[in-house]
């Protein structure tokens, strides 16, 4: 096995890791405000990817603006879904909210996946590149798309950080995550922020989907595994810690890359790489059984 191959795996792992982190940040945001684990998050990511694809291919929009269109579209769709399905979570009359959130988001994931098969077909689709071509770093070759996806992912996460810390809306979100009652007393409407948080989380997932699409392909079930990876990152990175999420994301991406590189049977390496991330999740859960979100409130730092 050559060093070049390892470096390529490492570079790819970093990019994938950043994309995972982008998804994970959305999961965290939604959990901290709505107090549910969103089982449909990977499917919002899938929809985001397809949305960008169709904006590009049907309307001839360049990839980058298409990504923003997709983010806006998923933001809207997510808010509609949240209004339709998740409002009972905020009512005192609803019992067993954990169970409700779980079954509803799991059912939503099932619905979205199967609608996607009908709407987009079961076969993989690939949109055009953001920036075609490759970069050479010595012997190392990295496609521009991967570089772009990695940097755009970081920019988006930084933008979220800025938003959370420096804007009034971000501060209000922080307030709602700490105490709905207190936030309501100072005049923040928590319900509006439920929708908003769900929308922002979905928009980040959509961006991740749009960025990943030219690298891998789009498929209706593409969201299942990243959804699981996102949980791993949230646990490893620490709740709400954006820096932790990025580091955990890259660490997971890297270890998956290395797992693929070192797996003794190359014909099975790829399949078991997927299982590897899942296994990490299970092991982490064994040691931190309720530690997915150690702290219940959001502190983006």
């Amino acid at each position: 096995m050559s060093w070049d191959y390892l470096f390529i795996q490492a570079a790819n792992g970093a990019v994938i890791g950043i994309i995972y982190a982008l998804i994970a940040v959305g999961v965290t945001l939604i959990f901290s405000i709505l107090k549910i684990v969103n089982f449909a998050h990977g499917d919002l990511y899938m929809l985001g990817g397809y949305c960008a694809y169709y904006v590009i291919t049907l309307f001839g929009v360049p990839p980058l603006p298409a990504m923003f269109v997709s983010m806006a579209a998923l933001f809207t769709i997510a808010i509609i879904l949240e209004r339709l399905l998740l409002t009972p979570l905020y009512s005192d009359a609803t019992e067993r909210k954990d169970e409700y959130g779980l079954i509803v988001t799991f059912g939503l994931a099932f619905f979205l996946r199967n609608i996607a098969i009908i709407a987009f077909g079961p076969f993989p689709l690939k949109p055009p590149s953001f920036i075609s071509g490759v970069q050479h770093f010595g012997n190392l070759i990295v496609t521009n798309d991967r570089l772009f996806a990695g940097s755009a992912g970081i920019v988006l996460i930084l933008a979220l950080l800025y938003f959370m810390h420096r804007t009034i809306w971000g501060q209000a979100l922080d307030a709602v995550s700490q105490s709905r009652e207190a936030a309501a007393i100072v005049g923040i409407n928590p319900r509006r922020f439920n929708s908003f948080a769900f929308g922002v989380g979905a928009a980040l997932a959509a961006a991740a989907g749009a960025l990943i699409a030219p690298i891998f392909s789009l498929a209706p079930d593409m969201g299942v595994l990243p959804n699981i990876q996102a949980y791993v990152i949230v646990i490893l990175g620490g709740m709400g810690s954006v820096l932790g999420s990025i580091i955990a994301g890259i660490a997971l991406g890297e270890s998956e890359g290395l797992f693929t590189a070192f797996f003794p049977d190359p014909t099975r390496a790829l399949a078991y790489t997927n299982a590897f991330g899942v296994l990490v999740l299970m092991i982490v859960l064994i040691f931190r059984p309720n530690g997915l979100f150690g702290r219940r409130h959001l502190r983006m730092e």
């Binding site: 779980l102 699981i228 949980y231 299982a275 899942v278 296994l279 299970m282 059984p289 309720n290």
Partner: peptide, 15 residues
């Protein structure tokens, strides 16, 4: 409990 058990068993099923 709750969602964590669901995530864990989902992981088991996928593996």
């Amino acid at each position: 409990s709750g969602p964590y058990l669901a995530i864990f068993t989902l992981g088991f099923a996928e593996i």
